[in-house]
């Protein structure tokens, strides 16, 4: 049984938003340039810590571009998807920030003597 195919491209796509090919090419070039940039910046002495910050900012920028354009979140039809993305980022941030905060502040305050193991082990 043959179904009559809709003739125009937009009709075939139905509910999805179709990006222009030129936009994808522009995104691709941007991503390649940012990769070159992040590699180049690594060879410039910004004092170690700032190198990491710049590298991570570029990585976040690249990831956002991929999510918005290649993964179609810019024109996403289901709004719950945005909630899922924000939740994923939130819980990753929670995981890293809380753990780092714990490690970084250990030993800053001395524990009361009755909390130390030797108190219980007479």
């Amino acid at each position: 049984m043959t179904q009559e195919a809709p003739s125009s491209p937009s009709a075939t796509a139905g509910f999805a938003h179709i990006e222009r090919k030129r936009l994808y090419i522009a995104i691709w070039i941007t991503l390649l340039c940012l990769t070159a940039l992040t590699t180049a910046v690594a060879y410039v002495d910004l004092g170690g810590a700032w190198n990491t910050v710049v590298a991570l900012l570029i990585a976040v920028g690249k990831a956002s571009i991929v999510v918005l354009f290649f993964m179609h979140v810019r024109h996403v039809i289901e709004r719950m998807i945005r909630v899922v993305i924000v939740a994923a980022i939130f819980f990753l941030a929670l995981l890293i920030i809380i753990t780092v905060a714990d490690i970084a502040t250990r030993g800053m305050l001395s524990s009361p003597h009755w909390l130390t193991p030797s108190f219980f082990l007479w």
């Binding site: 690594a42 060879y43 002495d45 991570l56 990585a59």
Partner: peptide, 11 residues
């Protein structure tokens, strides 16, 4: 890529 290869700079 930055976290493993470019960690803390390459200079």
């Amino acid at each position: 890529y930055p976290l493993l290869y470019l960690l803390g700079g390459r200079f």
